[in-house]
Design a protein around this nucleic acid. Structure first.
Length: 266
DNA sequence: ATGGTCGCCCCGCGA
């Protein structure tokens, strides 16, 4: 088999975006697509549109708010959802975090939608931080059990880890996504030895994955880098290249996030 | 052209 291409994409509603998503899949030679914000219940997900292209799909969506999915044409095994020990997890009424994992082509891949946090004084921010710490500890446990695990954590982290990851820090004073506590929660993954496998291939500043729909943010280049693929060393060693496909942010009917693509050698 | 939110299933709210 040739190289494996893994992508993560916050699609902002799969039902409103499915034509664009499957068109992109057909063109991009992506083998494993991690999707977030499908905004669909499981019974609403358009599985057939992926299956007819040769992809298996696993979806985890409890309500209209978020929902995550993995589409793979290189196998989809050992699917699991969620982190049950996180408060709020599994509450169907919670418009909050979702996670789904599977083994695809020998890589353990997770599609993550990290809680937004809303505002610095909102209880959802504490939930976000707790959720991230639970994920970090879980990831560390998996790695302790299998040091050579090729693991990819892909998704919308709702954190801009460095100043260069937003267009203007002064516009984010008092905001979530850039606060020291959120950045520390992200940095903890890096301190554990996980690697942002995209940044070396798509360096900043001004390299973003998300642009708000409002106020002409995209043409004005007012974006944020909040979508990431973090890999274990066993995965990072296999990275041939990575890119943010900002072309997909263009035009009518675009998601507000661009796909982030990582290519791995066998 | 990349052009002044979008998408939910509720008509406001979260992002």
């Amino acid at each position: 088999m040739a190289a494996v291409r893994i992508a993560t994409w916050n699609v902002n509603s799969i039902r409103s975006r499915v034509d664009r998503v499957v068109d992109w899949l057909g063109r991009s030679e992506t083998d494993v697509l991690l999707m977030q914000e499908t905004k669909a219940k499981d019974e609403q997900f358009p599985f057939a549109r992926f299956e007819e292209l040769g992809y298996e799909v696993a979806h985890h969506g409890l309500n209209q708010w978020n929902g995550v999915a993995i589409a793979s044409r290189v196998g989809l095994e050992d699917v699991s959802v969620g982190f049950p020990d996180v408060p709020g997890w599994g509450d169907p009424a919670a418009p909050e975090a979702r996670a789904i994992g599977a083994t695809c082509g020998g890589v353990r891949a997770w599609s993550l939608y990290v809680p937004n946090g809303r505002t610095l004084d909102d209880p959802h921010l504490e939930y976000k931080l707790q959720w991230l710490e639970t994920l970090r500890a879980q990831t560390a446990a998996w790695r302790a059990a299998d040091p050579d695990l090729p693991l990819a954590l892909g998704g919308d982290f709702n954190i801009a880890p460095f100043d260069e990851d937003v267009w203007d820090m002064s516009a984010f004073e008092g905001s979530t996504h850039v606060s020291p506590r959120e950045r520390a929660a992200f940095q903890a993954f890096l301190d554990d030895g996980l690697v942002d496998v995209v940044r070396p291939h798509a360096p900043g500043p001004g390299t973003f994955t998300y642009w708000d729909y409002q106020q002409l943010a995209f043409p004005k280049k007012r974006g944020m880098r909040i979508d990431f693929v973090l890999g274990t060393p066993a995965l990072a060693d296999r990275v041939l290249g990575a890119a943010i496909d900002r072309e997909e942010r263009k035009g009518k009917g675009a998601s507000d996030h661009a796909p982030v693509v990582v290519e791995l050698k066998d």
